[in-house]
Amino acid sequence: MKREDVDVAVLRIEGTNCEEESYLAFKRLGANAEKVHLKQLLSKDVLEDEERSLDGYDILMIPGGFSAGDYIRAGAIFGARTKSALGEELKNFVETGKPVLGVCNGFQILVEMGLLPAVDKTISQVPKAALETNDSNRFECRPTLLKVEDNSNCVFTRGYKEHEIVLYPSAHKEGKFVLDESISLEELEKNDQIVFRYTAPDGGEPEYPWNPNGSLDNIAGICNPEGNVLGLMPHPERVFDPYTNPDWTRKGLKENRGDGKTLFKSVLEYVEDNF
């Protein structure tokens, strides 16, 4: 498949708010990206020419924000609504190997829907992990450093070097990753599901604020066992270009990329090669 034929849906409902930069990340790389309201996929309250179907897309991205206000639990309402309306279609989408990316609130939604960690099947009935309130009990907007723990299984990280340290900023109040007791950390490890861990600037154990939320085992992002569904709290789309890096004025702009660009490039290359 050619790059310009890769159709990307950046999904939104009320309260989604990182859709513009997420959409631009794909578009700048030449893909055919589109911001799609959940209602367009459900053909509800929209004109005929606004109707869309999920299987018409090759990549689904659920961006950050505060879907439906997140007054119950981050991602809970969006997750429940999407799952009940699109569950079967989503399952097919994932099972055909098409990539799904959830960033920040999108990660929370993927977990709420049971698409992650999805240790034994595509969608689990009840959530098997959660993103809880940060240990600081505050919203934390700060640069975070991530170690790329897997660059082979996950289709989003193949362009990174193994154990490369990247800077993606974090901005959330509920990002502390915890696992249901029915799943062990070893299982995730064994399946190569741990994709990103928070790390200190020297690559060592991250104390707060380098682990900004108190996540279990410093986990910042995980994928499903097949590697085509990725969820992470930090925002790769905010460091697509070098000059949105928080310390670019110190490093200069010689390298023409921000750390996040490779993630989007990797998944597009995967789709080009496999579909």
């Binding site: 930069e21 950050g64 505050r138 919203f139 901005a171 905010r238 949105t244 928080p246």
Partner: peptide, 18 residues
């Protein structure tokens, strides 16, 4: 840090620098 100062990916110089 309690305010999101990077959403929309337009922020080139942020309130905290260095």
């Amino acid at each position: 840090r309690q305010y999101d100062h990077e959403v929309r990916e337009n922020t080139i110089l942020k309130p905290l620098q260095g």
